[in-house]
Design a protein around this nucleic acid. Structure first.
Lengths: 340, 340
DNA sequence: CTGAAAGCGCTTACAG
DNA sequence: CTGAAAGCGCTTACAG
């Protein structure tokens, strides 16, 4: 059933039916009711291609999906996408994921030229991110999940990575720890840089200027790396008594390393992780339960979708910037260090 | 730049340019070359909405993305999607993910009515899956990742779950194990049923008819459940000496349970897991390295996309059925049981 | 081998 | 408050 048939069926013009369905003002209430009800009954859906052609808008959000780099192909990314999809769906938007191998430029160009997305979502920003300039050049509205150092204005949703890791480090300092290692994500990405800066700023403020030397490791946030990095750090001398990890997966590996060295988490080594609230890896199920900085990445996805839709419908960029605070949840993996 | 402008620029009709670009036969080679080259140079992309409207096809594959149920929102799903997206991209198809809360019927109806996907991908099939009949009714081509018991014909890509788990169980039997537990995924899903059937058929064939009683656990494939189920099984008496897990994540939890009970994987308890080749959780990095049945879920995604595109372009359903064999990779987590 | 023209199903000025 | 009509940018019989 298309618009012409529906209109004929109702004895109205396509114009009126279209306006009634799209919520325009200039329609008699009774007419509107009749139209909406009939559309509902026969299950009418506008042909997306036709609407797209007529309006120039696709009612879809776009996201580049890196299929070769492992960078984003991790559980954090899907949880983020789930949030995007959930909010987009509520607003009647689809999500078009375009696979990319290598450069994302091609994908964005396609989105722009084919008008296949009204706004795109940019994930995993690095410090100097060329995608910002590219997207601006293409006139394609976009929202960044995270931030970059690029001076150009752009819409973004981020969490307070710096504050969170400063606070986590401060907690360990307050407990009496003095050697505190950092097990970070890939530091070409901004979030990881911010976290490192937060960690080191707490140490500096405590007068432990040299305490950052050699006590940080960074790489993909896998269990394997968590193990490797933790093991590496714990074998330095004097041994760190605290470890701060950029993900629960890394913390997971760190736990394993601590155990393998015959030590105990909580007693010998305090561990804090950053919890994105991935549904299949819950920090409170670890033994001992993991102290975390916490911010649901899924909520971030929802917010990014919200921003993207607003951007596509005319909200100015400068109103679309948000830095969410991060909770610190204290559990059994942190304690005062043993006096030696 | 649109088709009209490009044609004018070339001094040709839209008809000829369109045909040249779409690879039709009736175009002089020289003309085609000129057209293709010009399109390339100016970066011409057909407007997707217009093409969609004119052809009735969207050049997109659809997939329902469950945003509330955790069922599919796990790392296996993203790895699968990555495969789908990769292959679709190569073929010039987009992937439209439509978020669903609750029933997927609504999403499929939308795909069908809006013509927003040429074929859809059905994930996580259960034994009696109403989605099969629904999609057939909507005349929307679809490919199932896995199988159902529904007697209706449908295109699918599956792995030999039954054979894999029979073989895994047989390996443990051959090593001398007699009490072999199963830690399975959610048994409302077909893959989990098939795996259980494979496991029990090996036991039955070995004359151990009663050996399946009480030795199976099933649920979401999380580390947490792996721990819980393994712990539960290992506390039965006599203690099982072998455990077969439906995912590396479950095996991960099982390792933790074994350790917590003061036992050692390999020596006291042999463990086998099913490896979907998730990039962030590699079975050979466990200690001891995990023996696995292995089949990359990403490849399955690529194959499903391949089938979906073929289906959308006219290949008959009955040619689109595939059951991939599964490798068994022997590592240190399996050994003969200690004589007691 | 090439082109003029109809048509896909919407939206939206414009007229009444 | 409603409708006739143009137009969005393609594809594709059809004619030549």
């Amino acid at each position: 059933m298309n618009l012409r048939e529906l209109s004929a069926h109702l004895g109205l013009s396509q114009t009126t039916v279209s306006r009634a369905l799209n919520g325009y003002g200039d329609v008699a209430p009774a007419t509107r009711r009749k139209v909406v009800e009939a559309a509902e009954r026969v299950g009418y859906r506008p042909n997306s291609g036709a609407r797209r052609l007529a309006t120039g808008r696709s009612q879809a959000l776009g996201i580049a999906f890196p299929v070769d780099r492992n960078l984003l192909l991790d559980p954090h990314f899907i949880e983020f996408i789930a949030g995007v999809a959930a909010h987009a769906g509520e607003q009647g938007y689809d999500l078009t994921v375009s696979p990319t191998t290598g450069t994302e430029g091609e994908v964005y160009r396609r989105f722009a030229r084919m008008r296949t997305a009204d706004a795109v979502i940019l994930s995993g920003p690095v410090l100097e991110d060329p995608r910002i300039a590219l997207l601006r050049g293409l006139q394609l509205p976009f929202v960044v999940h995270g931030r970059t150092q690029t001076p150009l204005p752009y819409a973004f949703v981020d969490i307070d990575n710096h504050g969170a890791f400063r606070q986590a480090c401060q907690l360990l300092l307050d407990l009496g720890h003095r050697r505190i290692g950092l097990i970070n994500g890939d530091e070409s990405q901004t979030f990881a840089r911010d976290r490192r800066a937060g960690w080191s700023s707490a140490l500096m403020a405590a007068g432990l200027v040299a305490a950052t030397d050699g006590l940080a490791r960074a790489g993909a946030m896998t269990e394997e790396n968590g193990y490797r990095f933790a093991r590496d750090l714990l074998e330095t001398s004097p041994r760190p008594t605290g470890l701060i990890c950029s993900s629960v997966l890394l913390a997971f590996g760190a736990y394993r390393a601590v155990r393998d060295l015959g030590l105990a988490v909580g007693r010998d080594v305090s561990v804090i992780g950053h919890d994105d609230e991935l549904p299949f890896l819950r920090p409170h199920t670890l033994d001992p339960p993991l102290t975390v900085t916490r911010s649901p990445i899924r909520k971030a996805g929802e917010r990014v979708a919200d921003f993207a839709i607003r951007l596509a419908t005319g909200t100015p960029i400068d109103r679309l910037a948000e830095i969410k605070p991060v909770d610190l949840v204290y559990r059994g993996s942190t304690a005062a260090p043993e006096v030696r």
